[in-house]
Design a protein around this nucleic acid. Structure first.
Lengths: 148, 148
DNA sequence: TTAGGTGCAAATCTTTTGCAGAAAG
DNA sequence: CTTTCTGCAAAAGATTTGCACCTAA
């Protein structure tokens, strides 16, 4: 965990930015909730517990900055808010989402199932893939059980 | 084109809704711009040319209604606005997006490449897939050419 | 001392809602 | 008539911005 913070600090500094206490608190919240997909408001509330004086605008600015640096990924699941995920070390994003339309849960699959498709895309469409996003909407295993 | 409007009219009526002139004008705009991904504001401006008295709220309400009926699909590409696409006749959504990070173009692949994955999901994760969404970010063939 | 950061409040932008009147069966 | 629909204006909610102060190299 400390190692990942150190790395992010270096990413920031290499671009002339500082890892301020506010930014560090924000990153720690993301780190401690890696499997969730927090909104800016979510992050704000959690950061407030550690650093009550922080402002919402700072959280937005931090998330935007980290997003520009590809440290976090900004996502949109269709409810009116942006959600943010820490990226893994290689700065690539290769997980897929299982979005339950019944209970709203968002699960993840961490494997990358799309490499064959990406190769096909480059060949057939001359489209050079940088990243992708794959979401499935459906009924999750928990709701499936309950329905019986 | 008239046939598709007629079909949408029946879909509305079967649920107790009317195909009002405003709604028809909205559908026609979507029909005439099927390969674009229009925002509510885009649709509003185009509908205004045919029916200048229409209100933005009506466009939003119409798009929301059509979305509920699965006549259009509401999407979000990460810029702050929702975008709307007419669905095909079977009311399924099986196209994939190629989003160019350089010129911003959004191309589509109409084939469904994911059926094998969906089967695997149901087996391995007990997740019943209703719909999916697959977007690729990268460099499109046009930009690829220009760069040379 | 100087550029980068921050908190606050105000501004902006998209989308939704309340309401009174209009349209359609 | 009664239900659905509309336009307008106001409200709501998320995000951004202006600004004066702050803080670290």
């Amino acid at each position: 965990m400390e190692a990942r913070i150190e790395k992010i600090k270096q990413q920031l500094q290499s671009q002339g930015y500082k890892l301020t206490p506010q930014r560090e608190a924000t990153v720690r919240v993301l780190l401690e909730n890696e499997e969730d997909h927090l909104s800016a408001e979510d992050v704000y509330m959690m950061v407030k517990e550690k650093a009550p004086e922080i402002g919402l605008a700072t959280v937005y600015r931090t998330l935007e900055l980290l997003s520009d640096l590809h440290v976090v990924e900004k996502m949109n699941f269709g409810d009116g808010v942006a959600r943010y995920d820490l990226r893994n070390d290689s700065n690539t994003h290769h997980h897929h989402h299982l979005i339950c339309v019944q209970c709203g849960a968002v699960d993840e699959i961490m494997e990358d199932w799309l490499l064959p498709l990406e190769e096909r895309l480059e060949k057939e469409f001359q489209f050079k893939v940088i990243d992708h996003r794959l979401d499935f909407q459906g009924i999750c295993h928990r709701c499936n059980k309950q329905d019986k």
